[in-house]
Write a protein that binds this DNA or RNA. Structure first.
Length: 198
DNA sequence: ACATTAACTGTTA
DNA sequence: TAACAGTTAATGT
């Protein structure tokens, strides 16, 4: 979801700053605000019982956080953690819902965003259910590239660390490294001095 | 701080 | 049982 800055500000949105590793919201918090990143990157994650981290997504500028939790009376099932120094617009849930009533086009866009979200979540679940690491990684990078306008081969650089890719796919870094190399041999992607192009 | 390699272990197709 | 993902640890960029 993306709402124009001027609309956010004129509706009375706050701007909050976060340092790396700071939580924007935590699991078990109740959603009270619509969050939209003004600058920086944020990971949406979950820690499983043995302390292992699973990253749902890594989001950047102009992307919203946990907006699908605002139409529901439930606690967040995930955390939002700053990866870099961040500034985030915060609009109280009530104001946000009023905004949707006030602007039908924003409301429509919200539906379309949720639909988009659900579509990609479905694709991701299918890929992540595979025990083949190449399928999982390909699922992830296809998703990432879908936000990029040019679909030419190798036109998109994956700006994630190997560890992030591992945490997003539920694999180990070593497996990610091995699999990326295999995929490079198969000409699925290209690696140039450690940068991945897809 | 991140990426790679190697040697070993355990699981599974 | 051979292949392959995870573990650990050392080394490279």
């Amino acid at each position: 979801m993306k709402i124009e800055e001027n609309i956010l500000l004129s509706s009375g949105a706050d701007i909050k700053s976060y340092n790396p590793k700071e939580f924007i919201f935590r699991e078990e918090d109740s959603p009270h605000c619509y969050f939209q990143i003004a600058s920086g990157t944020v990971k949406i994650n979950h820690y499983n019982e043995d302390g292992g981290e699973f990253i749902h997504n890594i989001l950047g500028e102009k992307q919203s956080l946990g907006d699908s939790m605002l139409f529901l009376d439930k606690k967040y099932p995930m955390n939002a953690v700053a990866l870099t120094p961040c500034t985030v617009f915060c609009l109280p849930k009530k104001t946000f819902l009023n905004l949707l009533d006030q602007y039908p086009d924003i409301s429509k866009q919200m539906n379309s965003c949720l639909s988009h979200h659900l579509y990609f979540k479905t694709l991701m679940i299918q890929n992540m259910a595979s025990n083949n690491p190449a399928v999982r990684i390909k699922g992830l990078i296809d998703y990432l590239k879908s936000f990029h306008d040019c679909d030419d081969q190798f036109s998109f650089q994956i700006k994630l660390t190997r560890q992030h890719i591992a945490d997003l796919t539920g694999l180990r870094v070593e497996t990610v490294i091995r699999t990326l190399k295999k995929m490079e041999k198969e000409n699925i992607l290209k690696i140039e001095n450690r940068h991945i192009f897809y």
